[in-house]
């Protein structure tokens, strides 16, 4: 085990955990944005007229077909300087990841809404419920319930995508590891093995939970 340095590992672990806090923060806020914005996209797709839906569809497809890193560079170096207000790299990163995954979540919500039996819509009409109550009281609770596992999987995927934020110098966990190894010209194995294990420990149980949820919700 000459290539493993215990002391470096012990020194790295708390540093990486510190970076992991940023990773978790980005995951949490990014997913929150992705979940809400995705629902907004799906809602527009369902209710807006054709001349809004079509261009929106193209934009969403463009976002889905281009890599988050390229979007990140574009947002950070092209959009951000023109905003006129100071926005830090972490915020840019959270927004880019949030919007990217919102385009995927929109498809999930869409499928969920389409899966709600027609009778429910008829019941809403028969009871002459107002639009708001119909969506939030009847349709969405059923639609979201059945797509919860898919939404959860996208949260896990976003979580694993957070290290791309290091491209614009956000000090999430992988960046911390990279900086430590560059400072010492060593300890690559320790840094990236521990980072990998932290990822595994966090994401594997969550994905098992999603699978269980899938079985429980019966789809």
């Amino acid at each position: 085990m000459s290539w493993w340095n215990n002391q470096a590992a012990l020194e790295l672990f708390p540093l990486l955990l510190e970076g992991f806090r940023i990773t978790l923060l980005a995951t949490l806020l990014g997913s929150l944005l992705a979940l809400t914005l995705g629902l907004v996209f799906a809602f527009i797709d369902r209710t807006a007229p054709e001349y809004i839906r079509r261009p929106l569809g193209w934009v969403l497809q463009f976002i889905r077909f281009t890599p988050p890193i390229a979007q990140l560079f574009f947002a950070y170096y092209v959009i951000r300087p023109n905003l006129g207000i100071g926005v830090d790299a972490l915020t840019v990163g959270i927004v880019v990841l949030g919007v990217h995954y919102a385009t995927y979540n929109a498809e999930i919500y869409r499928a969920g809404i389409e899966g709600v039996p027609k009778g429910q819509w008829e019941a809403v009409t028969a009871l002459s419920l107002p639009q708001g109550r119909a969506w939030f009281g009847v349709i969405l609770p059923q639609a979201i319930r059945r797509v919860l596992p898919s939404l959860g999987n996208n949260v896990i995927i976003l979580f694993k995508e957070v290290p791309v934020l290091s491209a614009i110098a956000v000090t999430e966990m992988v960046r911390v590891g990279k900086e430590y190894t560059s400072d010492h010209f060593a300890f690559y194995i320790e840094a990236f093995t521990i980072a990998g294990l932290i990822y595994l420990v966090a994401s594997y149980p969550t994905s098992l939970l999603m699978r269980k949820l899938e079985v429980r919700l019966g789809n």
């Binding site: 694993k160 290091s166 992988v174 990279k178 690559y188 990236f192 990998g196 994401s203 594997y204």
Partner: peptide, 15 residues
């Protein structure tokens, strides 16, 4: 599937 591709990339390149 459980570990991030970025971490795997770093691992294959550096470790």
């Amino acid at each position: 599937r459980g570990t991030s591709l970025v971490v795997q990339l770093f691992w294959f390149v550096y470790a």
